[in-house]
Computed example of a mutant assay.
Amino acid sequence: MDNIADLRKSYERAELDEQASDASPLKQFGTWFQQALDAKVPEPNAMTLATVGENNRPSTRIVLVKGFDERGLTWYTNYRSRKGRELEADQFAALQFHWVELERVVRIEGKVEKVSAQESDEYFKSRPLDSRIGAWASPQSEVIASRAVLVANAAKYGAMYLLNPPRPPHWGGYRLVPDTWEFWQGRKSRLHDRLRYRLAEDGAWIRERLAP
């Protein structure tokens, strides 16, 4: 096995300059997201979600962003899952996108709110049938005896709801409303570019460079 301490890469693909970046972090994110799509980055919508539990222990998991606009970034999940319980206790969270092929990272922090029932219903109806049944079948984050439990639950709810399962009341969307964005572009010699946008009291975004 190679020495892990010797693993390193020189980042030389691009740069991130204050004058070239957008004054709006949302527009800057939209530009980078589209570039990730154009570059066919694997699962460009995958993001790490960090939450904090009642015992002040942080936890992370990968979720998929399903939309972003001036209101924030949205994903969907089981409200009874560990992340759901932690967000119920502490509404502040952080998101991170890592587009390895582009040598880019985007970090977003803010407060999380549930999306409306209508938004959750509309998205749920757009999901494949197996995914809609799966939302009923999986008691997410709970201990189960074996995979057979999931298979049995899927069969049960599939027979119950056939082709039109309703959205479970414990399943729906969350939206993170950003107050901080950070855009990281890998650069040579570890002198990376980091631009942070933080929300001022008057609602304006303050853009500033951070040391790498």
Score class of each variant (00 low, 15 high):
Tyr197Ala: 04
Pro42Ser: 15
Trp32Tyr: 08
Ala152Leu: 09
Thr77Cys: 08
Asp22Arg: 13
Asn55Ser: 11
Lys66Asn: 10
Ala50Val: 15
Glu43Cys: 03
Pro139Trp: 06
Lys188Phe: 14
Asp179Ala: 06
Ser189His: 11
Leu210Trp: 13
Gln35Asn: 13
Lys9Pro: 01
Pro178Asp: 02
Glu15Tyr: 10
Leu129Glu: 11
Trp32Phe: 12
Gln34Cys: 09
Leu199Met: 09
Val106Gln: 02
Ala148Trp: 01
Met160Ala: 02
Ala117Ile: 10
Ile206Pro: 06
Val149Arg: 05
Lys114Glu: 14
Ala117Asn: 13
Leu191Thr: 07
Trp136Asn: 09
Gln91Thr: 01
Gly173Arg: 02
Arg209Trp: 08
Ala46His: 13
Gly173Cys: 01
Asp179Gln: 07
Ala23Asn: 07
Ala23Asp: 11
Ala36Gly: 06
Tyr174His: 04
Arg187Asn: 14
Asn78Arg: 10
Glu88Gln: 15
Trp205Ile: 04
Thr48Asp: 06
Glu201Phe: 04
Asp17His: 10
Ala200Pro: 01
Pro139Leu: 08
Gly30Ser: 10
Arg187Cys: 15
Tyr76Val: 00
Thr74Trp: 04
Pro25Glu: 07
Val65Thr: 13
Arg147Ala: 01
Glu182Phe: 14
Glu70Ile: 09
Thr31Tyr: 10
Met1Gly: 15
Ile144Pro: 07
Ser81Gly: 09
Trp171Gly: 02
Pro178Asn: 03
Leu49Ser: 03
Leu210Tyr: 11
Met1Thr: 08
Leu163Asn: 15
Leu102Arg: 13
Lys125Cys: 05
Ser21Ala: 15
Leu95Glu: 04
Ala155Trp: 07
Asp6Tyr: 07
Ser189Val: 07
Trp205Leu: 00
Val106Pro: 07
Ala94Cys: 04
Asp121Pro: 06
Phe124Thr: 12
Tyr79Ala: 04
Gly173Ala: 02
Asp130Asn: 11
Ala137Cys: 12
Asp6Ser: 13
Asp17Lys: 10
Tyr174Thr: 06
Leu195Trp: 03
Gln118Arg: 14
Gly186Leu: 03
Val115Glu: 06
Gln118Pro: 09
Glu101Val: 10
Asn78Ile: 12
Tyr123Gly: 08
His98Val: 14
Glu113Lys: 14
Thr60Val: 15
Phe97Ala: 08
Ala135Phe: 02
Met160Gly: 00
Val112Pro: 03
Asn45Arg: 04
Gly173Trp: 00
Leu199Glu: 06
Arg132Trp: 00
Asp130Arg: 05
Glu70Trp: 03
Arg104Pro: 13
Arg57Val: 13
Pro44Asp: 10
Ala89Gln: 14
Gly110Ile: 09
Leu210Gly: 12
Ala23Trp: 03
Gln35Leu: 14
Arg61Leu: 13
Gln140Asn: 09
Ile133Glu: 01
Lys9Ile: 11
Ile144Arg: 06
Arg187Ser: 14
Leu95Ser: 00
Ser146Val: 05
Asp69Met: 05
Arg71Gln: 14
Phe97Trp: 12
Ile62Phe: 08
Leu87Cys: 01
Ala155Met: 10
Gln140Met: 15
Arg196Gln: 14
